[in-house]
Design a protein around this nucleic acid. Structure first.
Lengths: 357, 357
DNA sequence: ACAATTATTTGGAACGTTCCAATTCTGTCA
DNA sequence: TGACAGAATTGGAACGTTCCAAATAATTGT
């Protein structure tokens, strides 16, 4: 129960050196004699000294606080939780620590947390922006020389780095797979049309359809909330169609699960009676029955990659914005009807390959 | 692209007042004249001032940095992700910000992140300790007057607050439910025996069994890793038993899912041929087929509650440790064989009630 | 109009660190 | 031995805020 906090001056006094020397030791400078260094270290341990990073980066103005901010729009979604874990891994082993906040798609909340993070002097920010985020919102940050990396959702006008998955290519391969299984009418289900991610995935769907020599039908594109409930709704409309589709690619896995629910409610078995393909490859995808065929995007990898990019920019002082899109791959399981029969070894993922049943 | 950071002094100069006055405004003091206040605020907005919290809490020594540290052992597990979201909610709306780190059950990592958080001057810590955490590890923190709240896993010897779910009662009600369905041989599957949580749940199982007038058989307790794979393993051993059980309560949901896998591999249908009950109620529980009957612990609620407790202690200066255990409730779905037949409306949770089929 | 209050405002002096310039200590070499 | 280079150390002065005591301005009562 020591009263006052032990400071660098206390250490200096106890070790019989000056505070400057202690500071030097703290920074691992090579200027200090080996003997003094170990003595100082010993005293620090003995007195239970804890470094005061706040004071430090008050002095080294504007420099490195070793804090990175991480803002995600929905931590409840395991996709983002994985992403955060990825970020944490590289950030942590670089000696940084992460401020993590959840916006729950609230743009106000987002503004608040970003402001708060700024006050705390973050040296960089990784953000998966809430829907309808204004690109200008991050202007002040970059103007202040704080690197920003946008992940998962692109932010059209902003001059910041971004890293998004290859939504287009993912959908193309999903459609190609279904077409290879003989499907002629393939629907695109779910998602809000006002987002960049939706546009990309839809574009991929369209070019996949055309590449397969099929016709693109407007009516087969049915948008809905990107949720399980949305999926139920979308498949309902799809089935009500005059010429109903026999397969669907879904905006994301949540929608795909909803589609499966909707199918079963109509006594149709996903996989056998109707092919379903998701997008994201959330952890539940391989656990579900039938296991979901889906486009895997490796959120943790995105997190790691984004963190690396950010750290690079932090260290470089000021790097210019770069935009990378990460590869995705189709993981064929059961819900598309192509997988081997359900076995206890569910979850064994198979590289995209058109092994028709 | 302003060069230097704008400080309280710049504001003072521009507004024609002293820095002290600006500081007063910043803290919302009632001492300052309404006119000056609004003028200062205007100037701040105009110059794009950002508060430097680091400098501030350097001065108000040891006081409030408005940062709380959150350390979880496995963020990938949606249980903990939800918990983090719960914490974030209350912490955020109290004007705090959270440092979140993931230990991945590594005790070294845990030590590192806690140290790092301390250097950053957190004003409190919420931690779900990694397995085999030494109670003494948090001694320095509390000695320094930093409140610590342990969640989910108890830390026997430590003089810190804790909030854990009522593991015992949960298991009692699970067993009671199964017994009410007519099961006579109920197994306890999964989990590592060296943890406090395991002990509690096992104790609950035992007293549930005895309360139902059944005999406790050592052989029906089969431990394993608390994972899906562990569940597969455990059910394998259970089935190999001379007199095999007809139902099982599982250490957690992951184990329960593994048990279902293992049953299906042996052509047994969970729910119909063998009753399975989990623990935790992770989000996948209601999505799975069959939907998992499980003990719901509301991780988000624990997060909220823990955060409130922590904030209370932070504000109180120094509150003594309190230990709370939160109520749990059995959610009856399909995997125990008691649920209504699987419908599209899966996920409708039912309050524990012995509605035998 | 004057003292007595009360309402505002204000210069330093901290807080714990890092940086700079300057100092003291070693040897070493002529 | 004295000069000199290099190694090791050191005393302030910052950094941007808050706090304190004290000063100034505005208001009141008489």
């Amino acid at each position: 129960m020591t009263k006052a906090r032990v400071t660098v001056i206390d250490i200096a006094k106890a070790a019989g050196v000056s505070k400057s020397t202690v500071s030097l030791v703290l920074q691992g400078s090579s200027l200090v004699n080996e003997g003094t260094r170990s003595k100082v270290n010993a005293v620090m341990r003995e007195l239970g000294y804890v470094y005061n990073r706040g004071a430090a980066n008050l002095r080294q103005a504007g420099a490195k606080s070793r804090i990175v901010g991480v803002v995600v729009n929905d931590l409840t979604n395991s996709f983002f939780a994985e992403l955060a874990v990825g970020v944490d891994m590289v950030v942590q082993s670089a000696g940084f620590v992460q401020f993590l906040s959840n916006t729950g798609e609230s743009i106000d909340r987002q503004r608040e947390v970003v402001a708060s993070m700024r006050e705390h002097g973050i040296s960089g920010l990784i953000v998966s922006p809430a829907r309808a985020t204004d690109a200008a919102d991050f202007k002040p940050l970059v103007a202040a020389g704080i690197p920003v990396v946008v992940v998962v959702r692109n932010l059209p006008g902003a001059k910041v780095s971004s890293i998004v998955s290859d939504n287009r290519a993912g959908m193309v391969s999903a459609v190609r797979h279904l077409a290879g299984l003989g499907h002629k009418r393939i629907a695109f289900l779910g998602g809000f049309p006002d987002t960049a991610v939706f546009d990309d995935r839809l574009a991929g769907y369209r070019s996949g359809v055309e590449a397969a020599g099929l016709d693109f039908h407007e009516e087969l594109v049915i948008s809905s909330a990107p949720s399980r409930a949305g999926g139920v709704e979308a498949i309902g409309k799809a089935i009500a169609l005059g010429r109903r589709p026999t397969a669907a690619v879904c905006f994301n896995d949540a929608v795909a699960f909803g589609v499966c629910d909707g199918l079963r409610a109509r006594r149709l078995e996903p996989g056998a009676d109707f092919a379903v393909v998701g997008f994201d490859d959330v952890i539940e995808a391989q656990a579900a029955v039938p296991a979901l065929t889906t486009v895997s995007v490796d959120p943790q990898g995105i997190g790691r990659r984004g963190a690396q990019m950010l750290l690079k920019q932090i260290n470089a002082g000021k790097a210019e914005a770069e935009a990378v899109t990460t590869a995705v791959r189709l993981v064929v399981r059961e819900s598309c009807g192509a997988g081997k029969t359900a076995s206890a070894r569910a979850g064994k993922s198979v590289k995209s390959k058109q092994d028709a049943e």
